[in-house]
């Protein structure tokens, strides 16, 4: 077991999907490697579900620096959240690009009968 193996197996380790022997190998490696021990601690403290609560402020750039640091530490070890964030940004960008295009598009002209109806209704209300 080396650091890369441990990193690749983190998800399955925490979800209890690894054979006992591999789990024990990870534990043994972490005991001898402070960096990987820190990674295990970090992974157990911040979950993907936690990250989701802060994703809008992160995308908008309004997340306080202290929170952003924790957020990005999780991103550094979780490819699933990197992919989720990437798609989340694309969904927002897609909606905003649509809004921009729709607002900029020259509108179809106002139907004359609608103008006439509004003017007539207005007259009726005034009389």
């Amino acid at each position: 077991m080396n650091c890369k193996d441990l990193r690749d197996k983190l998800y399955r380790y925490f979800e209890g999907l690894l054979p006992n022997a591999e789990e024990e190998a990870i534990d043994r490696h972490a005991e001898a490697c402070p960096e990987c021990a820190g990674l295990l601690k970090q992974w157990s403290e911040t979950t993907c579900r936690d990250l989701l609560d802060f994703i809008d402020d992160y995308v908008d750039g309004t997340l306080a620096e202290s929170v952003r640091t924790v957020f990005e530490r999780h991103l550094a070890i979780c490819t699933q959240c990197v992919d989720y964030l990437d798609g989340y940004r694309k969904a927002i960008d897609g909606a905003r690009a649509l809004g921009k295009a729709e607002r900029a598009a020259p509108p179809a002209s106002m139907p004359p009968e609608l103008i006439a109806a509004i003017l007539a209704a207005r007259k009726e209300k005034r009389s």
């Binding site: 979950t47 798609g87 897609g94």
Partner: peptide, 30 residues
């Protein structure tokens, strides 16, 4: 999205390739 009891993604999110994301700019994708 759904999460496991341990708080991780139950279904791994999928990354879209660049051509797919570039489509976001096109009018038919809008």
């Amino acid at each position: 999205p759904t999460f496991t009891a341990a708080g991780h993604h139950r279904e791994p999110p999928r990354r879209w390739d660049e051509p797919a994301s570039a489509k976001l700019e096109r009018s038919e994708t809008r």
